[in-house]
Design a binder for these strands. Structure first.
Length: 566
DNA sequence: ATCGTGGGCGCG
DNA sequence: AAAGCGCGCCCACGAT
């Protein structure tokens, strides 16, 4: 693991007041060397000039504050330190003796939709008297905490997290190329003719009619779970819920059309014509990505359900003319991370090649690929019952080190402790409610029902911490992968053929979509092979930066295609 | 009317 | 109502 270079130019950039900015240049020791007040119109020229001669690390309160305006002007930042994102990491980490003092000034609050933009979207506090002094002090403290982590892991994590902050804004600016005509033809094919004025599409209406006929209620609202449940009971389908997995265990004639209706209904409400009109403009889907939006470090998203795009709509993701897509994902990222973190060479051997589950079968632990999958997922999620829970103990025999790592994480959690990812992102402390419940359960006169409940809540939290270390480390690998892809794409030459709707990236290959362990790049056709190489190299670098020479494979499933359809 | 909650289901 | 982690969004429904 190598820490990023220590001598680099740094410029603190903050929005001040309604329409201005302040840039403060720092020397290597963090001392201020120059200060530039900037009117809004001066921001883009100032930043692009500094980028040209020095590519500094920009210290930002948050990329989300200042970067969209720069991207609108076609100005890119090479590197950043995002104080808001790093505050969350450095505040909670248990990898240093003295972590960052928590401050509500540095916790993001989503502003109300119609609220005027504020400099500090803070929770329950006024803006500080002197924003720039507050920003400089916060940055110094964050540097102090990063430096306290002697192996450089927190520095690497903050650099990667900050790169993610830039990439999230860049992907929104560039957008995911989305072909509305393809989307509409998928909707028409599956749902039937588009309804006028919010009616029900034809195929959906006919499925609904079949269901109502079989249930003997012509006016039944199929979207009302209690009413549907009662109607099912009336015809003898004794389900406890209307979920599809329960319905599918019955052979009644209503099951097939009802499941079909549910599927169509889901497509219509989640990604139908209304979604298309709201979220796709100029051939681009532009969701809001929220880096670090999940406690494990995974990204969340807001608007348009970006992280839940159904696979049957992937065909609508289509490159512009003269451009193409590079679609890449990692097979079984999390168990590979687990093998490497635990230094489990037997599990790493099973992970050699494209299919880890096949390797687990070869090790003799289980008989089939399906069993291997359930066993591995069960190990990482903490399954105790069912097929999965039954298979987990077999893994303990063949991969004792890997299993010890997750078992220990679960035990820490059950005891109210904190666990951390490979780079030092730590799990949240359990709530006071939880702790009180656990303390109460040890009283001599504790109610047995309360003791049982406390036990269950303890195991719930243990499953969370068990998974935290694996999911969180996978998120770190993905962040470095993303940052390295971005870094490589920036070296590419301008393209002859533009993609005008991609804004600042209209002549440059760019990341267009990211989903935990998958990326979609939109690239000029002539650069497709080079971009694919960049994606593979970036994966290799991410693996080596996290795990050095430990022999773990992280193979990509990569293809170059006009469409993201599998 | 508006808000919070639970069921349900899409994604990894 | 999955078993076994992490999310966001839609709908109905009851409380306010």
């Amino acid at each position: 693991m190598t820490a990023p270079q220590t001598t680099e130019r740094r410029i603190v950039l903050v929005a001040v007041g309604a329409a201005g900015y302040l840039a403060v240049e720092l020397d290597d020791s963090g001392e201020e060397t120059a200060r530039h007040p900037l009117a809004a119109s001066e921001l883009a020229p100032f930043v692009s000039a500094r980028e040209r001669d020095a590519s500094p690390r920009w210290v930002l309160r948050s990329a989300r504050d200042v970067y969209p305006a720069l991207l609108d002007e076609g100005v890119l930042l090479s590197r950043a330190h995002d104080l808001l994102l790093c505050h969350a990491i450095l505040r909670d980490t248990d990898k240093v003796a003295r972590p960052l003092a928590p401050s509500p000034l540095w916790v993001r609050r989503e502003p109300a939709e119609d609220a005027a933009p504020a400099l500090f979207d803070v929770v329950g506090e006024q803006e500080p008297e002197d924003p720039i002094t507050e920003v400089l002090a916060q940055y110094r403290e964050q540097r102090r905490v990063m430096a306290d982590s002697k192996d450089g892991r927190l520095t690497l994590l903050c650099a990667a997290e900050s790169a993610g902050g830039l990439i999230a804004e860049e992907m929104r600016a560039a957008g995911l190329p989305w072909n509305e005509a393809v989307h509409e033809s998928i909707l028409t094919e599956i749902l039937g003719t588009r309804p006028v004025a919010g009616g029900i599409p034809s195929r959906m209406a006919s499925q609904a009619a079949r269901v109502r006929a079989i249930l003997g209620d012509a006016s039944l609202n199929l979207d009302s779970q209690p009413k549907l449940l009662r109607a099912l009971h009336r015809v003898g389908v004794q389900v406890e819920s209307t979920s599809k997995w329960q319905l599918s265990e019955h052979s009644h004639a209503v099951v097939e059309p009802l499941l079909a209706y549910k599927k169509l209904s889901r497509l219509l409400s989640a990604n139908g014509w209304a979604w298309l009109a709201e979220w796709v403009h100029d051939g681009r889907f532009r969701p809001i990505y929220i880096p670090g939006g999940v406690v494990t470090g995974r990204w969340a998203s807001a608007g348009g359900g970006a992280l839940q795009l159904p696979r049957n709509l992937r065909a609508a993701v289509r490159a512009d003319d003269g451009w193409t897509l590079v679609v890449a994902d990692v097979a079984q990222l999390e168990p590979r991370m687990l093998a490497a973190m635990a230094g489990d060479r037997a599990m790493a051997r099973a992970a050699q090649g494209a299919d880890l589950y096949a390797g687990v079968v070869e090790s003799g632990a289980v008989a089939t690929r399906e069993e291997a999958k359930y066993a591995v997922l069960g190990a990482m999620y903490g399954a105790t019952t069912g097929d999965s829970g039954r298979l987990v103990p077999r893994l303990r025999k063949v991969y004792p080190r890997a299993m010890a790592l997750v078992d220990k994480a679960a035990r820490f959690g059950e005891d109210g402790g904190v666990v951390s990812t490979w780079l030092g992102r730590s799990s949240p402390r359990p709530s006071e409610d939880w702790s009180r419940m656990q303390a109460h359960a040890t009283d001599a006169d504790a109610d047995p029902a309360e003791v049982a409940m406390a036990r269950r809540r303890a195991r719930d939290w243990g499953r969370f911490t068990r998974n935290f270390v694996v999911q969180g480390t996978a998120a770190e690998w993905s962040l470095i992968w993303l940052a390295e892809i971005r870094h490589r794409l920036r070296q590419f030459p301008e393209s002859e053929v533009p993609a005008p709707a991609s804004g600042a990236f209209s002549r440059h290959p760019h990341l267009a979509f990211f989903l935990h362990d998958e990326v979609i790049l939109h690239v000029p056709k002539e650069q497709a092979d080079a971009a694919a190489d960049a994606v593979r190299e970036a994966a290799e670098v991410a693996t080596r930066r996290l795990f050095g020479s430990f022999p773990i494979d992280v193979p990509l499933d990569l293809r170059i295609a006009e469409s993201a359809e599998k």
